[in-house]
Design a protein around this nucleic acid. Structure first.
Lengths: 146, 146
DNA sequence: TCAGGTGGTTGTATAGTACAACGTAAATGT
DNA sequence: ACATTTACGTTGTACTATACAACCACCTGA
């Protein structure tokens, strides 16, 4: 007998919740030097080739004060540098430093390794379907939070 | 062209991470009276029909001090009661109170509603496959953290 | 030009978490 | 049987991530 719609929803909810509960601690244990949040912010900077604190806040639905402090921490660690915006003196354009890029690459690699190992015995087809489902879920979830 | 194995792994990682980052805040906004963690602990008590603080800590990989404080908070809110264990005076068996069951049911219902709405336009087949994938992922993830 | 909006920091408060030290109770080994 | 070790739980302390509010400096448009 196939699971009912409600059963599936229940399972999805339970598993995502469990994952959320574990994620931070796991990430922190794996990379004491770069928390889940810092990692994400730094990755975004690398991806965007620099952006403003406000952009980070908007993109991740964080308060600007939170971003301000996270960025300050990243700067203190030497992972991020601030460049003035010639068109607007209020603005600081944030960029990863070479050390930032390096650290990001190494953390990203080791995170990837963990996931890859964890998903080692999945078929290619299952992997791509799982990825698709998560993206789809992420799109609606993000939308409803805005 | 189908995505490569690495692309899929990358996506899965990114989406799960994004979800983790959002989950707590979202849950807190939805249910100020019962955080994600409290909810989870209370749900476990209901599910197990009572258990010890140590069991909660082991099951959720939390420090016993964390559990102690969470339980104290739940008790203060009137959601949990402690019963002595006749066989071991050190032990307190934790049970949801009637109010605890009630609150749990209402929060669970509203959480379910959010998920149901979010997944409303998914086909039954996609839902059940997504649920399966998450369970499968959860099993390996849990194992590798222990 | 000046009123209101924007970018960012800082003060304050809260939740969740870990680790260490502790008290008490049970279990174990000699 | 007693001493040692282990187990359960609490409390003190500290840290991270977070939000909100107050603020300053700067920009923009009527």
């Amino acid at each position: 007998m196939p699971p009912s719609r409600d059963d599936s929803v229940e399972t999805i909810q339970r598993e995502l919740t469990a994952f959320a509960r574990r994620a931070r601690a796991t990430a922190a244990r794996m990379h004491p030097e770069l928390s889940l949040v810092s990692f994400t912010l730094l990755a975004h900077l690398a991806d965007q080739q620099g952006c403003r604190a406000t952009d980070l806040a908007a993109h991740y639905l964080l308060d600007k004060s939170t971003v301000s402090r996270q960025v300050a921490a990243l700067e203190k660690l030497g992972f991020v540098e601030r460049r003035p915006d010639p068109d607007d003196q209020r603005v600081q354009v944030l960029h990863p430093t070479p050390l930032g890029y390096e650290t990001l690459a190494s953390v990203a690699a080791s995170r990837r390794a963990v996931f890859r190992e964890r998903l080692a015995d999945w078929s290619e087809e299952d992997l791509s379907r799982f990825a698709e489902y998560l993206e789809r879920y992420g799109r609606t979830a993000t939308r409803s939070e805005k």
